[in-house]
Design a protein around this nucleic acid. Structure first.
Lengths: 217, 217
DNA sequence: CCCGGGATCAGGGGCGTCCCCGATGGTGCG
DNA sequence: CGCACCATCGGGGACGCCCCTGATCCCGGG
């Protein structure tokens, strides 16, 4: 337990959240986790890591300047380990981040002590996932061909079509989607028609199953 | 690793499956897991456990004579530990079995070595769950009030209503449910109307989400 | 400058969903 | 026997879903 402190850089675009992380880590006691620096976007993150050479980077997934994946790409040469810390538990984000090189992925619902534990385990070379995520991360790697096919299909959707698709898959009625996106019902119908055609599905029910099977919600 | 062998009774109504379990456990080597007896229904299981006093009972959930839960109820006085082994990963089965006193629950997709490991861990007093199941078992206990409420709601449905409910929740159209259950569409509509009213839901989409949230599929 | 693609919208039609009303027969219970 | 409950079915209606045709606007590439 009384090893050398783990040296950490915290990357997140919300200052409030960075403060919270810093406070939680500090309350674990001095000499357990040492926050060397913080960063709020991709450029700052790269600079901070190159300057401080931390053991672990706590990395937000959604980050101005390209996201956490971009940070990892530009620091691929270093031997720093990345622990993704995100509000999202969508498969797109998780799989993408792991592929980008993260050694772990936990959601922001994590408690302070759990985070400390996760950081130490990543520093030791372990992979750490939130319990909910572990299962489908393994599934995704077991069936990685299928995941690739999904991404291909998903790429054929436009941004607007993806928005509509997500809401429909969650059970929104066309009317509700229209209100949510400030567009007409008819426009929603058009987008949905395109979505179903591009994904080769024939009803919103199949879409729901398609999306839940792939944890896109 | 070289502790005393774990003494086991295998309970399952399929002889073929019992043979498979026995073979897999034997291939782990002599003196690791010792299969004392097999049983194919509730009465046999109770008798076998009382006769052999095993460390662990490998217990199928769906069993003629009342299911695995009944076996555990009638053996509650013993200090035997139960490891449920089932094809089902439905929440109803998992939660019910755990409540009945099982110390673990693994699905039949498990490999031989994993099963050996699971048996040893249960014998040592650990709780063992298939990765997919661990998450929602914990969820269920965290929100056990809600689970109780679910069961209460479910109990208010008749058998026929539950059948219809399951099919609808899986995305079947009324017409398809009718064909599947050899009844008229109108009857399906009546049942669905009752289901929605009893569960205080207002659409088949809410029903789908309700069911998937609780893993009733 | 035209052409393609994306986003927006409209009308109309076929079918699915969900509700209202009502009806029949079976079954168990006091 | 009367009564409650269940399963079964029907008509009809309001609205949702999905498709088709067709239209406008904007934007970027050849």
């Amino acid at each position: 337990m009384a090893d050398a402190p783990v040296r950490v850089v915290v990357v997140d675009d919300h200052a409030m959240f960075r403060s919270g992380v810093r406070a939680e880590l500090a309350s674990a006691g001095a000499g357990v986790v040492d926050v060397l620096a913080e960063a709020a976007d991709v450029d700052e993150a790269v600079a901070a890591v190159q300057a401080h050479r931390p053991d672990v980077v706590l990395l937000d997934v959604h980050l101005p300047g390209g996201g956490g994946v971009e940070v990892m790409r530009r620091l691929a040469a270093t031997e720093t380990r990345f622990l993704a810390l995100s509000v999202s538990d969508a498969a797109e984000d998780v799989i993408g981040t792991i592929r980008g090189g993260a050694r772990g992925y936990v959601t922001k619902t994590i408690t302070g002590p759990e985070l400390v534990s996760a950081i130490r385990r990543v520093a030791d070379g372990d992979a750490v996932f939130s319990p909910r995520l572990a299962g489908f991360v393994l599934d995704a790697f077991a069936g990685s061909i299928e995941v690739a096919a999904v991404d291909e299909d998903l790429d054929r959707l436009t941004e607007r079509e993806r928005e509509v698709m997500r809401l429909i898959a969650r059970g929104y009625a066309y009317k509700e989607v229209a209100k949510e996106l400030f567009i007409s019902i008819k426009t929603v119908e058009t987008h949905m028609s395109n979505v179903l055609r591009k994904l080769q599905l024939s009803s919103r029910h199949e879409l729901t199953r398609w999306a839940t099977d792939r944890r896109l919600l």
